[in-house]
């Protein structure tokens, strides 16, 4: 079952996102990103992990086209930003908080991207229904956002992202504000969705466990200015169930990641990775428990 997932087969297909030598310096002089090289291929679930303030959000926002890089180039599906949004090249961003419009109901919130694109109401409503069903909120379409729990608001936000049938989903700590039980549940739901829908995901998190559980590949970033410190392939088969969390392999990956993270946050110098070819999987790929 894992074999038909292209995630671990490096360099197959054109990169969904190709980040080359991207730097970001803010107006106030803060250098948030040192040159970053990173390529994400179709169907991957890539997680960015790194110490707070290392530029994960900045990188994700740059990929989303919300901020311009100070240097370097970005390619989306081999083209420029202009082509993003065409069929097969849809990109959506899920923010850390749900960012729902408090003045409209769940249905109208989820329908927003379709309304803005001028999709006819009937078709839009059908797609909203499907999207809400995917996140398990079919019965809550008439509620106002404030009538929902934090987890349900986040689901609404994800439904709004899914309604456009994205090819690339960018999530910036989407479940960071939720309790662990809810987060685990939403993680599992997201992973199941990804497995079913075959979109590409870039996910930012602080949680090592979340990174191991979800990812096909974890990109560890080092402290400011952010660089790719190491990339680690999580070589465990999909679909993953909750049971994966209690395997030896999971524990080994978690240990590896936490060591790596510690190194990345304490040590300033890059580990000879800065010049590595973009998209190259460096480091200890699949080292612990490579066989399952």
């Amino acid at each position: 079952m894992a074999a038909d997932k292209p995630a671990t087969d490096a360099l197959q297909g054109a990169a969904v996102v190709d980040v080359r030598g991207v730097e970001k310096r803010f107006a106030n002089g803060t250098q948030a990103l040192a040159p970053v090289d990173l390529a994400v291929r179709p169907g991957e679930f890539v997680t960015l992990l790194g110490p707070s303030g290392c530029g994960k959000s900045t990188l994700l926002r740059t990929i989303a086209g919300l901020t311009q890089p100070s240097a370097g180039t970005l390619r989306w599906w081999g083209g420029g930003m202009a082509g993003v949004g065409e069929p097969g090249r849809k990109l959506v961003f899920v923010f850390q908080d749900a960012t729902l419009m408090p003045w409209t109901r769940v249905r109208a919130n989820v329908r927003l991207p379709l309304d803005l694109a001028g999709v006819p109401r009937e078709e839009a409503d059908a797609r909203v229904d499907a999207s809400l069903a995917l996140v398990g909120l079919a019965k809550f379409d008439r509620h106002y956002p404030r009538e929902l729990s934090g987890g349900m608001q986040m689901r609404t936000s994800i439904a709004r992202a899914l309604v456009t049938e994205p090819d690339l989903l960018l999530l910036d700590e989407p479940f960071g504000a939720l309790d662990e039980i809810t987060r685990n549940k939403l993680d599992a739901d997201l992973l199941a969705l990804w497995w079913r829908k075959r979109f590409t995901v870039m996910f930012v998190t602080h949680s090592i466990y979340e990174a191991v559980f979800l990812s096909t590949r974890v990109v560890v970033m080092s402290a400011r200015p952010g660089r790719v410190f190491r990339e680690i392939v999580i070589d465990a088969p999909h679909p993953r169930s909750e049971g994966f969390r209690v395997t030896q392999q999971f524990a080994a990956y978690a240990k590896l990641l936490s060591e790596c993270l510690l190194e990345a946050s304490t040590e300033g110098a890059p580990q000879g990775n800065a010049g590595a070819p973009s998209g190259g999987v460096v480091g200890m790929a699949g080292k612990p428990g490579a066989s399952t």
Binding site: L66, F93, F95, T99, L116
Partner: peptide, 28 residues
Amino acid sequence: SPGLVDLFRMNKATRWQTLARLRIPSAL
């Protein structure tokens, strides 16, 4: 809310759409 501004921007909302669907309701 800056997040909603980003959301509208990413969905390529026109100036008018942003005004009618975002700025005016937020200002009420």
